[in-house]
């Protein structure tokens, strides 16, 4: 049986209590994208500024449970300064950790990035979420929202 300690690692609680990069950038010029988890009502609003291909700044607002908020906070720290291609790679890596693999995700999922593999760092702490399948959507909400935002740039 998976216990609460598998889910609520200290670092997750820390990101939940002290979320990094909270707020909203002025949009425009920043890009803005919104995501919902219809199951539990969590909402995330991302605003991010690009410099060329690089995510220069990304801020998060919205509301949600500890898992969705911690994951968003960790994501915000992880993607700053990365290129769009790198962010796509990191997202794929993160979703793989959440047991969501390329073959099981839809055709509209990310086109291949640059094939980087990253140190997941703090993000590793979210691994325990896999044992609580209903919470996987909480952990991936901000990531999917960012992907949607990036996809919108390309059309």
């Amino acid at each position: 049986m998976a216990g609460l300690e598998d889910l609520y690692k200290e670092i997750i609680i820390d990101h939940y209590r002290n979320p990094r990069n909270r707020g909203e950038l002025d949009s425009p010029p920043a890009h803005k994208t919104e995501g919902f988890n219809p199951l539990c009502g969590d909402e995330v609003l991302l605003t991010f500024a690009l410099k060329g291909e690089i995510i220069e700044e990304l801020l998060i607002s919205g509301q949600g449970c500890s898992i969705s908020q911690a994951s968003a906070s960790m994501m915000s720290a992880a993607v700053q300064g990365k290129s769009i291609g790198e962010v796509r790679d990191l997202t794929r890596q993160f979703k793989a950790m959440m047991s969501i693999h390329e073959e099981s995700i839809g055709a509209d999922d990310p086109p291949p990035g640059d094939g980087h593999a990253f140190e997941l760092g703090d993000l590793e702490a979210l691994k325990g979420v896999v044992k609580f399948p209903v919470r996987i959507k909480c952990a991936t909400l901000s990531w999917n929202t960012l992907l949607t935002g990036l996809d919108e740039l390309e059309v």
Partner: peptide
């Protein structure tokens, strides 16, 4: 958050709805 609350309750066999 209700989701976290219901998760803790679930550990004690208590079924409540969050959402």
């Amino acid at each position: 958050h209700p989701h976290d609350l219901s998760q803790v309750l679930d550990q004690r066999g208590i079924c409540v709805r969050a959402g």
